[in-house]
Simulated assay, not measured.
Amino acid sequence: MSYGTLVSSAVLADHLFDPGWRVFDCRHQLNDPAAGSRAYATAHLPGAFFLHLDQDLSGPTNGRNGRHPLPDPLLLADKLGAAGVALDTQVIAYDDAGGAFASRLWWLLRWLGHDRVAVLDGGIDRWLVEGRPLATDSPSSSPATLEVDLRAAVTSSDAVLASLGQSGFCLIDARAPERFRGENETLDPVGGHIPGARNRFFRDNLDVDGCFRPAAELRREFLALLAGSPPEQAVMSCGSGVTACHNLLAMEIAGLPGARLYAGSWSEWCSDPARPVVCQAPPA
Rank of each mutant, 00 (worst) to 15 (best):
residue 2 S to L: 07
residue 4 G to Y: 02
residue 5 T to E: 13
residue 9 S to M: 06
residue 11 V to W: 05
residue 12 L to Q: 06
residue 13 A to T: 12
residue 17 F to R: 09
residue 18 D to C: 08
residue 20 G to D: 02
residue 21 W to R: 03
residue 22 R to S: 02
residue 26 C to S: 14
residue 30 L to M: 08
residue 31 N to K: 06
residue 33 P to A: 10
residue 38 R to N: 05
residue 39 A to V: 04
residue 41 A to L: 11
residue 41 A to H: 07
residue 46 P to H: 05
residue 59 G to N: 05
residue 61 T to G: 12
residue 62 N to E: 13
residue 64 R to W: 13
residue 67 R to P: 08
residue 76 L to N: 00
residue 77 A to Y: 01
residue 83 A to N: 04
residue 90 Q to F: 03
residue 91 V to C: 03
residue 92 I to C: 07
residue 101 F to W: 11
residue 102 A to V: 08
residue 102 A to D: 04
residue 102 A to S: 13
residue 104 R to H: 04
residue 107 W to K: 04
residue 113 G to K: 01
residue 117 V to Q: 01
residue 121 D to C: 08
residue 121 D to V: 10
residue 128 L to D: 07
residue 130 E to L: 15
residue 131 G to L: 10
residue 133 P to A: 05
residue 138 S to R: 15
residue 139 P to M: 02
residue 139 P to S: 09
residue 142 S to D: 07
residue 144 A to Y: 04
residue 147 E to R: 14
residue 156 S to V: 11
residue 158 D to A: 15
residue 161 L to S: 15
residue 171 L to N: 00
residue 180 F to W: 08
residue 190 V to C: 06
residue 196 G to S: 14
residue 196 G to I: 07
residue 198 R to N: 04
residue 203 R to L: 05
residue 207 D to A: 15
residue 211 C to G: 05
residue 215 A to Y: 10
residue 222 F to R: 01
residue 224 A to G: 13
residue 229 S to L: 11
residue 231 P to F: 03
residue 231 P to S: 10
residue 235 V to I: 10
residue 237 S to T: 15
residue 238 C to F: 00
residue 238 C to H: 00
residue 243 T to S: 15
residue 246 H to N: 06
residue 248 L to S: 01
residue 255 G to H: 12
residue 260 R to K: 14
residue 263 A to M: 11
residue 265 S to Q: 08
residue 267 S to V: 02
residue 268 E to A: 12
residue 273 P to R: 12
residue 278 V to P: 02
residue 279 C to Q: 10
residue 279 C to N: 09
